[in-house]
Simulated assay, not measured.
Amino acid sequence: MESTQYDENITYDLGNLAAYDISSLDYSSLYDVTSKNSSRLLAKLFSLEKEEDELSVLIKLPQPLMVLPREKDPPKPKPLNKWEKFRLSKGLGRRLKRSRMVYEPSVDDYLPRWGPYSVKRLHDKQTAIIEENEEGNAREKRGEEKSLKKLKQKENELKNKLSNAMEGKKGKKDIDAALDVAKSSTVKHEKQAKKRTIPRKDKNTREEKQNNLALLDQVIKKAKIST
């Protein structure tokens, strides 16, 4: 009987994962009451309709009884870039977001696409030593390709921002203003990678030893920076 009367003092708002207890209590019983109310709330939640799979249990929550205000404004939709507008014009829809993990055959496991333990970092470690050929320094060529790729990406971002700022504007003043906005919004500009200046045509064994030590010193410095 006492338990039934106590349950009448609790109001559940399962949509907000909350339970409100109007019973009077003192500080000494606060922990016990909170623990029991938490157990009651979990029991109510697990009595709802749910979907189960091998990895998790999903509970379908009802509509909240109390509408809580947002701390910040709802996020604005991200403007479409040139490629996404082309896809929509062809009826293809927006491109789905790629998964964060990708399978790497060399380690027979899934690795993140970016970050300190990403696939790119693994490939850099696997190709730390590159043989020089007649075409020139392969490592310098790879660095130049990465820098050009980053600059190309920045150029595309600037074009997309200019295109979004130009919607509905036709006058020259409007074009100049939109261009200024697009340029000012691109804060970070990538710098060209510095080329190595280590000669590889060794005249004698002494010069070869000095060049190898200089190359080893650069590799050690790069490893310390990356870690």
Rank of each mutant, 00 (worst) to 15 (best):
M66N: 12
L80E: 07
K72I: 01
L88H: 06
G93I: 06
G91H: 09
N81L: 01
M66Q: 12
M66T: 07
K85Y: 11
D73M: 05
G93T: 10
P74K: 15
V67K: 15
P77R: 14
M66R: 14
E84Q: 15
N81R: 02
P62N: 06
L92V: 00
L68M: 13
L68D: 05
K82W: 02
P69W: 07
L92D: 02
I59D: 06
K85P: 04
K82S: 07
K72V: 01
D73V: 03
K78F: 02
K90I: 01
E71N: 09
K85N: 15
D73Y: 03
N81F: 01
L65T: 07
D73E: 14
M66L: 11
R87T: 05
L80D: 10
L92R: 10
R70G: 00
L68V: 09
W83F: 12
W83V: 06
G91N: 12
L68C: 08
L80T: 01
L80N: 10
S89Q: 15
L58T: 10
L61C: 09
M66C: 04
K78Y: 05
F86P: 03
D73G: 02
P62D: 01
K85V: 09
V57G: 05
K82D: 01
D73C: 02
P64Q: 04
W83K: 15
G93K: 03
W83H: 13
W83G: 04
G93P: 09
M66F: 13
P75L: 06
E71S: 10
P74A: 12
S89N: 15
K60E: 03
P77M: 05
I59G: 09
G91V: 02
P62F: 01
M66A: 10
K82N: 02
G91L: 08
P62T: 01
K85M: 14
S89C: 11
V57N: 09
P69S: 10
W83M: 09
P74Y: 08
E84F: 07
L68N: 11
S89I: 04
P64V: 00
P64R: 06
N81V: 03
K72H: 11
S89T: 11
P77G: 06
Q63A: 08
L68H: 10
E71M: 11
E84T: 07
L58K: 13
W83P: 00
R87Q: 14
K76E: 13
L65C: 08
L61V: 04
P62G: 02
K60N: 12
P64T: 00
L68R: 15
L68E: 12
V67L: 14
K60M: 04
G91Q: 08
I59T: 05
L61P: 12
P64Y: 02
R87K: 15
K90P: 07
P62L: 01
P74H: 11
L80W: 10
L80F: 05
L65M: 13
P74E: 09
W83R: 15
P69M: 06
K72W: 06
E84Y: 10
K85F: 08
Q63P: 01
L92A: 02
P64G: 03
K82T: 03
K90R: 15
I59K: 12
L92T: 00
P62W: 03
L92H: 09
K78Q: 07
L65R: 15
R70P: 00
S89P: 11
G93E: 14
N81W: 03
G91T: 06
W83Y: 13
F86M: 14
Q63D: 05
K82C: 00
N81Y: 02
N81A: 05
K76P: 04
E84H: 14
R87N: 13
V57T: 13
